[in-house]
Amino acid sequence: MAQTDATPLVASPRSPYVRRKTTRGNFELYSWVFMRASGVVLVALIFGHLFVNLMVGDGVHAIDFAFVAGKWASPFWQVWDLLMLWLAMIHGTNGVRTIINDYAQRDLTRGVLKSLLYLAFTLTVVLGTLVIFTFDPCPPEAPAELLASFCTA
């Protein structure tokens, strides 16, 4: 077929569709299994948490600063809440990572979104863990009117 100068150049449609690199490894496998396992554990942890906080004893009316302080005085609830925090954060972050991978079309967009995600993850997990382990309901130098009633009693 005769080609004239007016014929517009058609870019090769193949270039962006070649698989760029092989990315074999068990990471996605473990992350897939983790999502299922942590999901099951989280159901137990969260419903246990809701049951203890909202239904046992006075139920929702019992929740105040003292109630939380009392729970975190026990290593059992520290571990429970720590597990809940970590599992929920890893589970959620991994889910959002998957969604970003699925929907972001450009590598730059993908990179920026994932950096923000990991930053938010790190902040929340570090702060949360710190609070669970260093929580002191009655700091000694605090003014008395800001403290819970059981500290002064």
Partner: peptide
Amino acid sequence: NDKEGVWR
């Protein structure tokens, strides 16, 4: 067993 394999 690739990032772009069955796990997607």
